[in-house]
């Protein structure tokens, strides 16, 4: 694949370099490293929930298998595709910022915002369906077609489902807020080939949230009914 190597002129780049950095390259490396450090804490934050899911799944496989029937695979797959689309538009937005293409940047950022919003709206409808079917863990948990012996352990899976997808959705909402901020900044023509680090860092965050969903989708929707 051909990659474009873009030369950033030191003098032009210099005015965007904060006083505690030597040059734009060092500032870029520091920003990227800092963002990745934050993302690693996020990996462990979600990792704890993934470990809890795996443990309870291992303890109560039959209950989890019976419960997984309540997950809508088609909606989950469609939402996965929507998130992947949003990741592509985000990557293209970063590329547009690096090339100082303001209109393309705004367009791709709005595209990402729309895809992210579609995901959240679909998720809201999914949650509503779970509420209507009495699948919220607690005193009102009484789903149809669930064997009585699974009533207790099935709630653990739904608790994990709402925790994991809920925390993911919170991250998406934060991402939507960040994208709105980026669109306003891009409209004001803040970003260019010498100053795109904000777009790139928020892009990293957005892609990370996509990666979390890439693991949530098979674990919660696809392989629930398979035993180890």
């Amino acid at each position: 694949m051909p990659e474009i190597v873009h030369d950033v002129h030191e003098a032009e780049a210099e005015k965007y370099v904060k006083h505690h950095f030597v040059n734009s390259a060092q500032q870029m490396d520091a920003d990227t490293l800092g963002m990745w450090t934050f993302l690693i804490t996020e990996v462990l934050f979600f990792g704890g929930m993934f470990a809890a899911y795996a443990v309870y799944r291992d303890l109560y496989p039959e209950a989890f298998a019976a419960t997984s029937e309540f997950m809508n695979v088609k909606i989950g797959a469609a939402n996965t595709a929507v998130l992947i689309c949003s990741s592509l538009t985000m990557a293209l937005a970063v590329r547009s910022a690096q090339l100082s293409k303001r209109k393309a940047l705004i367009g791709f950022l709005i595209g990402t915002l729309i895809f992210g919003s579609i995901f959240l709206i679909v998720k809201a409808f999914e949650y509503h369906a779970k509420y209507v079917e009495h699948l919220i863990p607690g005193p009102n948990f009484h789903p149809d077609n669930l064997a009585p012996q699974f009533m207790h352990h099935s709630q653990i899976l739904f608790f994990l489902y709402f925790c994991m997808t809920g925390m993911h959705a919170v991250h998406m909402i934060v991402g939507v807020g960040l994208l709105t901020f980026l669109i306003i900044q891009a409209y004001r023509n803040i970003f260019n080939a010498n100053n795109f680090v904000t777009v790139e860092m928020i892009g990293l965050y957005w892609h990370f949230v996509d990666v979390v969903w890439i693991f949530l989708f098979p674990l919660l929707y696809l392989i629930g009914h398979w035993h180890w």
Binding site: V8, H9, E10, M28, C85, A91, R95, Q98
Partner: peptide, 21 residues
């Protein structure tokens, strides 16, 4: 002049990854 290199991925690369995903 001293300059840093910023790698900008090709559109084709990004679209290929998207299709694979």
């Amino acid at each position: 002049t001293s300059h840093s290199h910023v790698h900008i991925p090709a559109v084709g690369t990004l679209v290929a990854v998207f299709v694979a995903l």
